[in-house]
Design a protein around this nucleic acid. Structure first.
Lengths: 220, 220
DNA sequence: CCAAAAGTGTTCGGCTTACACCCATGT
DNA sequence: ACATGGGTGTAAGCCGAACACTTTTGG
């Protein structure tokens, strides 16, 4: 590493990339955590992450972490914020991302040491570094995004019923919505459309199946 | 710099901090640019910025840049986004910030080489790196923030008339607002209040002076 | 008295909210 | 037949947008 005049000298800096991976399981918003196997915070739960490799972009690094932990490649991934106060060390920044995945498509990495595990987002254990505030930040961002984008597609399978979609929204906002108003809203937003098919799943009227009009992130 | 097991090795990385400094001058939204005095992009206009020092936080680095360029310390400063594709070099990220200043309080640094200068935000020259997209990102963020926060305080003096405030909003959004609706809105939002004083400034009815109810950033 | 900017209310349409009953099915 | 979740319409309040005239001053 060269030292030199002015901006030519690069002090030792660490850039890490961390990912808040969120999903819905059993009607509950959950975040993926791993068990730290090294110091500091040995044995604590923490967000998946690691150093940025010099050859990769920030988005690539986040996608790589996500793939390693969940096996998912098709997903919603977005940069959240860059923190400099997570590990209390100078010259160290962490670029936090958040990702949304459909839990049905996830196969958690079988890694005995890290024990990746889904935790209910309200009810996290004490986390290493200041990871709790990173998760909170991600949840706030997610709630905002649900209001004006179609990102919910990344939490849903190809087709789904309106009740299922409503349940996902309710899990994230932590409150119930009116069924009629919810339906009017998502349909008039144009983010979903009926497929024409129905699905019978119990001793009651079958539900119509819907799909997202687009599975690319879009602002409304 | 140590090399070692696992995460102990830190590859050479550069973290720079850049700042989009916005203000209103002559009814126009303007951004502060400097003239590059070194390679690459020698002689091009670019956003103020520099390397993060190992001893400082990201916010400190951004505030330091801002102070160096404008002499302003009391301001609105917020992290925007972290880019990894600005200079096309691997292992380099730039944490972009945006700042709002009241141009009446600014004394630009007298630095013949850098020639810091205000440019109209729509009408920027071609910029070094991909700085144009950083400025665009800042303007979008500013417009959004004006809708649901009181950050406009940082562009205004202690007291001002409603017409002056409206003019600032119009400069930023690039369109005219209805006078009555604008007044109703800012007053009902509770972000400003009348001082009781008036100011006469021409051959017409004097205007009432208003002030911000808070000069700390607040969401509505 | 004239020019110039300051100040002030009302109407309309659209959106959000609240709310209750019938439908189709499996058992 | 009954239990279960699926599906539907309407009324009220609130918010944003459009719109024109009077007031106060300096010259």
């Amino acid at each position: 590493m060269p030292a030199g005049r002015g901006e030519g000298y690069y002090p030792p800096m660490r850039i890490s990339v961390i990912v808040v991976i969120l999903t819905i399981i059993e009607g509950e918003l959950r975040a993926l955590l791993i068990h730290r196997s090294g110091e500091p915070y040995l044995g604590w739960w923490a967000l998946p992450g690691g150093l940025l490799l010099p050859s990769e972009s920030l988005a690539d690094a986040a996608a790589r972490k996500l793939l390693e932990e969940t096996g998912v490649t098709d997903l919603y991934l977005e940069q959240l914020f860059t923190f400099d106060d997570l590990d209390g060390e100078a010259g160290s920044v962490a670029v936090a991302n958040f990702a949304l995945v459909d839990s049905r498509r996830v196969r958690l990495r079988a890694e005995p040491v890290w024990e990746p595990r889904w935790f209910a987002a309200n009810g996290l254990p004490d986390l290493a570094f200041n990871n709790t505030k990173v998760v909170d930040y991600a949840i706030t961002r997610l709630r905002n995004k649900l209001e004006y984008t179609n990102v919910a597609y990344s939490l849903m399978p190809e087709t789904f019923t309106l009740s299922e979609l409503q349940s996902v929204y309710e899990s994230i906002f932590g409150r119930a919505f009116d069924k009629r108003n919810f339906r009017r809203r998502v349909i008039s937003q144009g983010i979903i459309r009926p497929t024409g098919r129905t699905i019978a799943r119990g001793a009651h009227r079958p539900a119509e199946l819907y799909e997202f009009t687009s599975r690319q992130p879009m602002a409304l």
